[in-house]
């Protein structure tokens, strides 16, 4: 039993069996993380570089912790404090790091497709930790893991992805994954932030009314408004966005059922999610973060185990 892929570049390229294997393995790693010694020796002989060309808090810490819990050796690289500022190319940087005998690359980059480009040119296994507006596969996996943990299964569950669909790699990875695992998916948000091809490209429902979306779903995955990727004015103000699409306590309370609220972080409090919702019992945001370590351990473990000597 092993993954059908050498790299984790996106959810688009992996099979439902791969997803199942990663989630099942993550369940066992989650148990490891409850032990007095939260560490296993599996990747003792593996060196991993965390290559972050874009800022990150959760993902970088989560990957680093996952690597340490697996006993791998790790190197951290952030573009801002490196020779990238002197003009070194991506491929040169990575080849220089690999010549120091590094086995795996975890990479975040602001250009969509950057990890795919690397995968064509270097022998090491690559894990995409977010590339531009393309994919963020480990986030989708940990979201799926968290839903499965709370609802038992993904199959037939109704998941609404709410907010900035156009610029969100979390949305895209989640879409691929949820469809592959048999969930029903809806995207909701202002028409300016939802690409017009969503329906025919993914077979998902599109809803422009937040209340209707919340009434329909079992789980609301609320996305961050990506202020750094807005190059044109797609909504008039943050305040107006909050009025129309911010998830509020009163609205959740008026629904007939209690839904789960998720958010990939970092939260713009008072924009897409109000503080009293983010901190409520319906929110599983911190549980998502906790699960992130177990899911990333599973991904790294399964990819490292794949290379046969």
């Amino acid at each position: 039993m092993r993954l059908s892929t050498k790299h984790l570049l996106g959810i688009r390229d992996i099979s439902p069996n791969d997803i199942q294997l990663i989630l099942d393995t993550a369940t066992q790693f989650k148990e490891v993380l409850q032990r007095p010694v939260k560490k296993v020796p599996s990747l003792r002989d593996v060196t991993i570089v965390n290559l972050f060309y874009e800022n990150s808090t959760r993902t970088r810490i989560s990957f680093e912790l996952a690597e340490k819990r697996l006993s791998a050796d790790t190197i951290n690289f952030s573009a801002s404090a490196s020779s990238v500022s002197k003009g070194e190319t991506l491929l040169d940087t990575v080849n220089n790091i690999l010549s120091m005998k590094v086995d795996m690359v975890v990479m975040r980059h602001s250009a969509s497709g950057a990890p795919h480009f690397l995968a064509k040119h270097i022998p090491a296994a690559i894990v995409n930790a977010g590339d531009g507006i393309n994919e963020h596969p480990t986030q989708a996996l940990l979201d799926a893991f968290s839903i499965r943990e709370n609802l038992g299964t993904l199959e037939g569950k109704k998941i609404a992805i709410i907010g900035d669909i156009m610029h969100s790699r979390v949305a895209l990875s989640n879409l691929y994954l949820l469809k592959k695992m048999g969930a029903e998916v809806m995207v909701a948000g202002p028409p300016t932030l939802i690409p017009t091809y969503m329906k025919e490209a993914f077979g998902v429902q599109v809803e422009y009314n937040l209340r209707k979306a919340l009434e329909w779903c079992d789980v609301a995955n609320v996305l961050r408004i990506q202020l750094e990727r807005q190059n044109q004015v797609l909504f008039s103000s943050l305040r107006e966005y909050n009025q129309a699409y911010g998830v509020k306590k009163e609205m959740l309370a008026s629904l007939k059922k209690e839904i789960l609220v998720m958010h990939p972080g970092p939260i713009n409090r008072g924009v897409e999610l109000d503080s009293d919702v983010a901190d409520s019992g319906q929110s599983i945001i911190l549980q998502q973060v906790e699960n992130g370590v177990a899911v990333r351990m599973a991904v790294l473990y399964l990819l490292a185990g794949r290379e046969t000597p």
Binding site: M1, L21, T25, Q28, L302, A304, G305
Partner: peptide, 10 residues
């Protein structure tokens, strides 16, 4: 681990 990947159990 590097020779053969086993599926983890509970």
């Amino acid at each position: 681990v590097r020779k053969e990947l086993h599926v983890a159990n509970q």
